[in-house]
Design a binder for these strands. Structure first.
Lengths: 252, 252
DNA sequence: CGGCCTATTGACGCTACTCAACATGAGTGG
DNA sequence: CCACTCATGTTGAGTAGCGTCAATAGGCCG
């Protein structure tokens, strides 16, 4: 559960990284990539369950996921965990830490993964030289803000079924833009994590997954998910027509 | 409900504004204030119910609340509103718009208020000249991100009672840092807005306020709130010991 | 003064939580 | 390599918290 210090001897340049168009370099001019490469540190490797940073630690760096996946969570005053995001390759972590110069959340690897470290000092210095970089970082932060608005809407207004359907679709599209299948994927997080993130009990998540399987919208085998009817899943997430529970009831 | 075009002929400089230490200038060097003053536009006045900007409109400016209060909300695909924040003097609005170059939420005045407009183009140009300003904006965005994390925690995990108590305390402390009483204040938002924001039904908000009044933690008279027992309210918000419902039950 | 919007209060029902038992697979040590 | 253990997930029963519906009251504005 401790921070890990292994690193691979050589790091790919950002230009050579397949996720650069999701990550920091996106939107930068080619000539600025070289400068950014000097700032981005070597990759760390994290084992499953190891933490990248913890809430309260001094803020030193942003991190970009290069492979694997990470969950980040805050702790409430009574010690319970609230997952605030699942991070996939190309995602940046640590924007929450700018406010108080310390991380406000904890980031833990859901599986073996590698991350690129971006020291904030060097990055800020580079922002002065490359104004587009500063703009781009603000844009990424803005994206995170709007994404969190959507999340607040979900938690405040949507039913358990809609929340889960939305998450499954969200993961699907995130795999898709990364070049993987949108129809089938492997969940890196447990049912517990899903429930925690969506504000639901583990049992509810389990029941809903079983139910979605039963009505042939998805196929579930442990953490493997196959979307069998993308359209109905989307309808469900948007609450159009009636949801599957209603369908079932009408069939009774 | 339309954008309003009245403006006062003369605007106070940021230096003369009582909320400058909550707002953009905070953390800047005095010599940079003059540059900022050239960027910050004259104040607009908004009547109750009028909108400052709406979701989908092209992003032109950030806005700082100078007086009064504002709610901002997003719309779900089925048209229901989700309030994502209440804004008081010194607060900045519009960070969500950087992502797509358009506002993703709608901002509506809860009462008559005045706002300072900060054209994003000029601001970004100034950021190049004054790197501290860029850093500061990122810090403000980071604060918004962490605040939203707390909100996600509330919506996902906390009971109706805890949510409401937390909001009342939050408003209290925000009035306090602005030089007003932390013990009593006037709510600018309706019960409906409170419920919407907290993910609760109006009726639940009403019942809880009545209940908090009954057990002498607060005094409620329409939108006027007086906190009679700050300590118990804080305990309630932190779920320590037992909540008032339990207290009542034990008294039965 | 009348109409409308906001808020309160009560009765009822449903969604999702809790508690509990059980199943299954993964990891570990003999 | 198998048995044991533990973590993870599933399923069922009962229930609590909060939403929905409905009726009513109280301010506020024209």
């Amino acid at each position: 559960m401790n921070k890990v210090i292994n690193f691979t001897p050589a790091r790919l340049s950002c230009a050579a990284c397949g996720f650069s168009d999701l990550c920091l370099p996106h939107g930068l001019k080619k000539e600025d990539w070289k400068l950014l490469d000097e700032v981005v540190q070597q990759e760390y490797t994290l084992g499953k369950g190891e933490s990248l940073f913890s809430a309260g630690q001094p803020f030193k760096s942003l991190f970009a996921v290069h492979s694997g996946s990470i969950k980040s969570f805050i702790l409430s005053n009574d010690g319970e965990e609230q997952i605030i995001g699942f991070h996939m390759p190309g995602d940046l972590l640590g924007f929450d830490a700018l406010a108080d110069d310390m991380y406000s959340c904890t980031a833990v690897a859901l599986e073996t993964c590698s991350v690129c470290e971006i020291p904030i000092k060097s990055l800020q210095n580079l922002c002065v030289k490359v104004p587009d970089l500063g703009k781009h970082i603000m844009m990424l932060m803005s994206q995170q803000i709007t994404a969190q608005h959507e999340m607040m809407l979900m938690l405040a207004k949507k039913s358990a079924e809609v929340r889960l359907a939305t998450l499954l679709l969200n993961i699907s599209s995130r795999f898709h833009v990364r070049g993987f299948s949108a129809q089938q994927y492997h969940l890196s997080m447990s049912r517990h994590d899903i429930g925690n993130y969506l504000g639901l009990a583990v049992e509810t998540v389990s029941r809903l997954l079983t139910h979605l399987h039963e009505v042939n919208i998805i196929q579930v085998d442990r953490r493997y998910i196959k979307i069998r009817d993308m359209h109905r899943l989307q309808q469900l997430a948007q609450q159009v027509e009636f949801d599957v529970t209603h369908v079932k009831r009408m069939a009774d």
